[in-house]
Structure formats: structure tokens, C-alpha cells
Design a protein around this nucleic acid. Structure first.
Lengths: 204, 204
DNA sequence: ATACCTACCTAACGTTCGTTAGTAACCCAG
DNA sequence: CTGGGTTACTAACGAACGTTAGGTAGGTAT
């Protein structure tokens, strides 16, 4: 079928553009990257990009939109796979760290380039980001209710955990000292240490 | 003295420009901000900015240069004021959080706009940023040697602490629920909980 | 009063930007 | 062999960019 092949090729070309855009925006930023530079990396002309995307903004939104989808589905699957607040928080943190190492560049963009989105696109992205953050607040709250966590402020702790793990995307390197799995393990330990209720008289 | 008044006025004008640039770059990013937009906010013409700064890049560098200075001197003063690894780490974390709340915008820029610096300027900034990070690694190492801290990886823990506190600059709001002091207190607690050696069998 | 300096201005330079119009090469169906 | 759709191209648009040249009003020093 021509149509099936065609749509497949088309999707593949769009995918190639998105991958190149992720790499370029990561290094130079959205406003620092031009359609001509993006096209050059793909051995194309700038005008040809407009066959696949309606605008530069549409490319940025496509990247962030998909990344937010991946984050939401990923964390959903991660917490659903285990039971209990502690195991679920471990799974969620682990997923978040691994995602920010493996999908480092798009994860970075979905924080750093929010300001480059148009108002409408920003709204759509923020709705899902809030949803994502609510997952972590929910896990902390359940843990506190169950008596296994002890945190002075759920919202603040959730922000602290998320920004700490999100930071992995800014410094992680494939050729670095630590593998994503090692980083995730250690982050999980650090975080659990700071939210777990201390059995007897707490050190603080 | 004419010269003293003159240099003072000149410095004040430059200061005004820097403050406006911090606010603008924060919202739109360096490449997303134009000299004309910056000038409009100051009720000036774009060309007039070149009387005070040689280029747009020079403005960005001036912001980051001074911010790095403030960070280095600030953390130096903070740790020198107390004794012992734990008290010093508390002081350093406390300073870092307070700085990223009070000087939120320039602190944010000194992380997000590193990529907009020219190669030479970037080098100068990174040298001092590395120096700053070394302070935290040093505090962790002393604590481990003294037997009061227990961390699996000093470098990783330092990065985790720094990115977590740095994140405050991205979400803090003057009109938010928590005052900088409260945030700092709680961050200090969370971090100390996760690096302090547990007296008997650790929870992990 | 004159000369000078400071701090701004207007006007314009050449370049690059995102984007559109129109077109040519290719591929597969009939 | 022909025709239509797909995917790229060349060329160009107007706008905005960072920056420079040159001028001018107002204060200060002599």
C-alpha cells in the first residue's frame, strides 16, 4: 500500500527532524537555533522543513509534548508495578532519574525551553507537568498517612526531589564515571533516607 | 569632584541596565531578548546601551561574572563563620538556598545561560563554578573523614545537593507560600538527613 | 564666554531570521 | 507511457537583529 509506506516514511522523516532539533536546541537553545542551522544538520534546505512541520514553534511543541507523554506514562507504569508507598516512591524516583539520563536532551528541553513556548502551547504542557508533579506529592502523602514517611512539607519535598533528579539531565554524560543505574540507585537511597520516618528519636 | 560624580552616575546607569537585563533574560532568554527590547524597558534607545557596554555579550558576562563572585564570597563567609563539617555544611546549604531565593533571577541565569556565553567567557565562568562546587565536595569529604557523614559517592552527592538547591531559583516566588528562611531550614534538614551517618544499623 | 565631556539621540549598515511561493525530481498506480 | 502525489529544491519576502557613525543637548571646568 502506497499510503502506508508513505505515512511511514513521512513519520520517519519527522522523527529525524525531531531528533536533530532536540540535539540542536539543547546546545544552542530554541531562540539560538535557526531553521537553516537545523536543516544543515539534516542535509536539507530550511524551506523543506516546512513540509513536515508548520513552524519552528511546532517542532518545539512536538518535542515537549511527546516528552511529557513519555514521563506521564512512564511514571504511571513504574508505580503501578509495585505496592506500598515506599516501594512506589522508589520506583517513581528510579524512573525519573533513568529517564533524565537516557532521554537526557529532551528532558532538559522540557524544563529549559518552557519559556520559548507560545502561551497556548505552554498551557498544554504545564497541565501535564502539574499532573506529573501530583504523582510525587501523592506518593509522599500516602507514605506520611501510612506512617512510613516523615516530611515537614509535602509540596516542598516533592519539588526538592523532582528538581534534584531533574538536574541529572544537566550534567549526565554517557562517558561519565557513573552509569544511569548507579546514579538512580544512589539517588533513591539519598531521597529515601531524607523522607523515611526515623524509627526512634530522629537525628535532627 | 566631577570625576567621582561622573563615575558614580556611570556605574549607577550600568547597574540599572544590568538589573533590567537580568529580568529580561530571565523571562525571554538571552537569544530571545533583543537590545531594542532591553532599551525599551529602560526608556532608552538601543544604541545608547553601547555607551555603557561594548556588546550584548558583555552584558550577559557582567551578570554571570558578578553572580559567581557573590556565590564564591558568600559561601566562603558562610563556612568560615562556624566550625566542624556538619555546621559548615548546614551553613553552606543555607547560604546556597537563600542566595537562589533572594538573587533568584541572576542565579537562574548563571545556570541557564552558560550556553550563551562565548567560549572565552564560558571558560572564565566555569573555572569559578568548579571552585564553588569544590567547596561542597570538600565539606562532604571532611564530614566523611570525621565520621559524621556517610555518603556512597562524594561527587554525586555534591551534585545532588547543588542541583536540588539550585532548583529553588526556578520555582521560588516572592508571593509564594514559604519564605526563603523556611525553605532553607527545610532543605538543610532534608540534606542533613540524607548525608548524616546513622548511629546504629542504617535504615537502608 | 568658551571648550569640553557625558549621556543620550537618529539613522542606517549589513546580516540573519522565520516563512512562503513556485517548481523540479522521483515513485508508484493505472 | 502517463498522471498524480510525495518530497525535496531555489528564490525571495519583510521584519528584526546586533552594531556603528555621527550628531546634539546640557552640565562642568577654565
Amino acid at each position: 500500500m502506497a499510503t502506508i509506506v508513505a505515512t511511514h516514511e513521512r513519520a520517519a522523516a519527522a522523527e529525524r527532524i525531531l531528533r536533530a532539533a532536540i540535539a540542536l536546541f539543547r546546545v544552542r537553545g530554541y531562540h539560538g537555533s535557526s531553521m537553516r542551522t537545523l536543516a544543515r544538520g539534516l542535509r536539507m534546505e530550511a524551506a523543506s522543513l516546512y513540509y513536515h512541520f508548520g513552524s519552528k514553534q511546532e517542532i518545539l511543541f512536538a518535542i515537549l509534548d511527546r516528552t511529557l507523554d513519555d514521563l506521564l506514562h512512564g511514571v504511571g507504569r513504574a508505580v503501578a508495578a509495585v505496592e506500598g508507598p515506599e516501594a512506589r516512591l522508589r520506583a517513581a524516583v528510579r524512573f525519573h532519574v533513568l529517564f533524565h539520563a537516557h532521554s537526557q536532551h529532551e528532558a532538559f528541553l522540557s524544563h529549559s525551553e518552557l519559556r520559548s513556548l507560545t502561551q497556548g502551547n505552554l498551557r498544554l504542557v504545564l497541565i501535564r507537568r502539574d499532573e506529573y508533579e501530583r504523582v510525587f506529592r501523592g506518593l509522599l502523602t500516602s507514605g506520611v498517612r501510612a506512617g512510613v514517611f516523615q516530611v515537614s512539607d509535602v509540596r516542598l519535598t516533592a519539588m526538592a526531589i523532582l528538581t534534584m533528579c531533574t538536574g541529572v539531565a544537566t550534567w549526565f554524560s554517557d562517558r561519565g564515571r557513573l552509569a544511569p543505574e548507579s546514579i538512580a540507585d544512589r539517588y533513591v537511597e539519598m531521597i529515601l533516607r531524607s523522607v523515611k520516618r526515623c524509627p526512634k528519636g530522629s537525628p535532627s
